[in-house]
Design a protein around this nucleic acid. Structure first.
Lengths: 206, 206
DNA sequence: AGCCGAGTAGAGCGTTCGTTCCAGAGCTGT
DNA sequence: ACAGCTCTGGAACGAACGCTCTACTCGGCT
């Protein structure tokens, strides 16, 4: 069910998602499209087309329709981002330097993507506040998991409560805000500046 | 043209926009809907309905269609927000305290609106990056004008370049990010924390 | 061999989308 | 009185929307 065999057996050409099972291909494509175009701007038929699946398959795997599909895709993107965040934070011992490294890494990634691969959930989160509490809750959980990643790093580095918790909140907020600004300006300077300011702020807590 | 007379002459009851001319009513309604539902989630017919105008009127005043309407509405929201920001910043002399006061004011407003009145352009900006460069440019100009408001305050308070410029960028980034988080969590704590952290950061520059 | 469930394929439902078009209302200038 | 204008009102268009439905293929089971 989670990794069904490929019915036709054709051996996966071209892009990164092609090697996955149909369900995972739909999920990855949905996550990407939601990130770029938001919930309302992304159609089920477009998802099916780009995932090289058919409408029947989409509704077979996600009988809850667009909303269920979006929720699972957002969780998919959440987990991927959280893992990346934890990995990068672990490469540097000092917490301020680690946050700086993480922000710089995201700046690199954003630039490399042509200023399109920002936060995987913000776009959808903003569109659906007030419209769909279920989706909003998934987005809230995503933010929480990223805050937790930063929080764990700060705690391990010896920063006490409640400073560690509050700093974690601000780090994620500022990272998110800077990523939006960087996307809109097509310039990574806002992210670089944010990294330096966050490092400076963290260093005032020891 | 900017304030056309009301054809029917009926004397405008009920809500805040009703006293405006048709064009301004359409603009204000569009700005509000874009803020809450984004570009793709907002329909022209919904705008006409809620602005108590007709489709004919909408296309009469905005022959460029949805895109022109959105661009002008975003500029409308931009100017309103920039003015508010400058006003609040002017009420307190110390720049750190002024930013704290501004963030708190936005936290109050967000709470009072039932967690819906966040940043007037972010939602649309994110949806349209990569889709519509024109709209993206309007959003970039909006961010720039808010940065300028903060920048002027910091400069007046004696903070030198390039610190003032960079701080202004981070203040707007963090404010935006915190507003999103606050919306998603339906809790103003992220904003309050952001205000304190920004004030603390600014105080390290003197 | 016969069957069954998983997955594929896409026509078609009702609705809404952005947009176009035109007839008419109400005002102003002559 | 009458033209000329701005602005209103809404029917109608083709395309796209989310979703349902049925027919089909195919591998693994007894």
């Amino acid at each position: 069910m989670q990794t069904p065999q490929d019915g036709t057996g054709h051996p996966a050409p071209a892009d990164a998602t092609a090697a996955l099972g149909t369900r995972d291909r739909i999920l990855a494509t949905t996550a990407r499209l939601l990130q770029h175009q938001g919930y309302e701007g992304t159609g089920i038929k477009q998802i099916a087309r780009e995932a090289k699946a058919t409408l029947g398959s989409v509704y077979h795997f996600f009988p809850g329709g667009k909303q269920e599909l979006a929720m699972e895709a957002l969780q998919h993107g959440d987990r991927e981002f959280a893992e990346l965040l934890r990995t990068v934070l672990a490469t540097v011992e000092d917490p301020a330097d680690a946050v700086l490294a993480a922000v710089d890494a995201f700046a690199d990634a954003l630039r490399a993507s042509g200023w399109t691969d920002g936060c995987p959930v913000t776009t959808t989160a903003l569109e659906t506040t007030g419209t769909s509490p279920e989706i909003q809750e998934v987005c809230a959980a995503a933010f929480r998991s990223w805050q937790d990643a930063v929080h764990d790093k700060l705690r391990t580095a010896g920063i006490p409560e409640p400073d560690a918790r509050e700093l974690a909140v601000t780090v994620i907020n500022t990272l998110g805000g800077a990523e939006i600004t960087a996307q809109v300006f097509r310039d990574d300077a806002p992210l670089r500046i944010a990294g330096r300011h966050l490092a400076r702020l963290i260093r005032t807590y020891r």
